[in-house]
Nucleic acid binder design. Structure first.
Lengths: 199, 199
DNA sequence: GCATTGATACCAACCGGTCGGTATGTCCGC
DNA sequence: GCGGACATACCGACCGGTTGGTATCAATGC
């Protein structure tokens, strides 16, 4: 292992472990072993375990945004098709074992919201940042069809709620089937919301 | 404190603490202090901490089913109205601070699904049992209106996904507003699914 | 061209405290 | 007087975090 990559290796290990076992059950020692570094290195790069959590949240969102950028979900002429494409990408991501497709942020914020305010804020910001482009496309679709009755932000947050809830179901039943079904219901809802306004 | 109630007090304390801080971050000592009993009493009634979690999940579902039974959500002539009433009760329950209205099962299963199989199974069973009556009403509503294209179970699970996801959002943003908005989207979806089949 | 310097990256050993769990007793209703 | 319901005292392992130190680097002076 070459000099200078300990921080990245720790963040990657943290994302994997916390997604699988949660924040509290992931120990610093365990992370160091997984990343192949020592505890000294850990506390050289992160002041506390909470600091690592905050950095991991930011890195996770970067990673996720990269996936969506490469998916081409915004490459459609109609903004409604872009919104539906976002959901389709989410459905396609539901593959492999549970920790592989679930969300670090949702997992973490459930545990720490009441006890680690800084980490809660970081999770909130991560969600907001990730949803911003989706919210733009929803607003464009609403404007193009003259749809009213709700705000773009509320629908974007609803999309995120279904995604996070689908992850909870996937963890409860040990696989992604119910999660995918739920996202298909979401897709139908969005289609119905806008298509009934078509000419 | 009278003799014989230590078990109930421990379960109540566990439901409160785990809802607020999660399973891993809730220690046995802390629970004993909160319940006003000693560690000897704890391990007299529960073989392990995981056993307590399983018992707490069952007790939480009992408590929740009691709330819904008293709400009268099934006291409508039309099964669709009963389904919508279930969602309305869920919206009305979104009051107070976050640990007061969020779900023990969803919080716990996120942390333990990969590490505590027995606890994961208990959470899965709790969700399934709670959803059974809702699924019946969905099936009745579908039959009454000749709605097809999805199964009653998938819509019941979607309702639960939105509820769980709404709780995650509430924890991320520190309040129930976004959660309530999401449940209103869900209500609109269910209404649209069935009402477009009305005469 | 090379020694000096200061900063950064990292390491091994260790700290007090807390973790889940146990061993052994005591009390009280039947 | 006996069994279930607790209490007290304790255990080894592990927790997040700290310590004092070393290896490696770029920048500087000469």
């Amino acid at each position: 292992m070459s000099r200078g990559e300990a921080r990245q290796r720790l963040l990657d290990a943290a994302i994997g472990q916390i997604r699988a076992r949660g924040y509290a059950a992931t120990s610093v020692d365990e992370l160091c072993t997984a990343a192949g570094v020592t505890k000294g290195a850990f506390f050289h790069h992160f002041r506390t375990k909470e600091d690592l959590g905050i950095a991991a949240a930011a890195r996770f969102i970067e990673w996720l945004d990269g996936i969506f950028a490469r998916s081409g979900w915004r490459d459609h002429a109609d903004p409604l098709d872009r919104v539906l494409a976002y959901i389709d990408v989410r459905i396609r991501l539901l593959r492999g074992d549970v920790p592989h497709f679930t969300c670090l942020i949702g997992t973490m914020v459930q545990e720490v919201h009441a006890t680690h305010p800084a980490l809660r804020t970081a999770c909130e910001a991560g969600i907001r940042d990730h949803l911003a482009p989706l919210q733009e496309e929803i607003a464009a679709a609403m404007a193009a069809r003259g749809v009213t009755g709700f705000t773009p932000g509320s629908l974007a947050q609803h999309v995120m709620a279904v995604i996070q809830g689908a992850f909870v179901l996937a963890k409860a039943e040990g696989g992604p089937e119910a999660a995918a079904e739920s996202l298909r219901h979401l897709r139908r809802y969005v289609a119905m919301l806008f298509r009934e306004h078509d000419a």
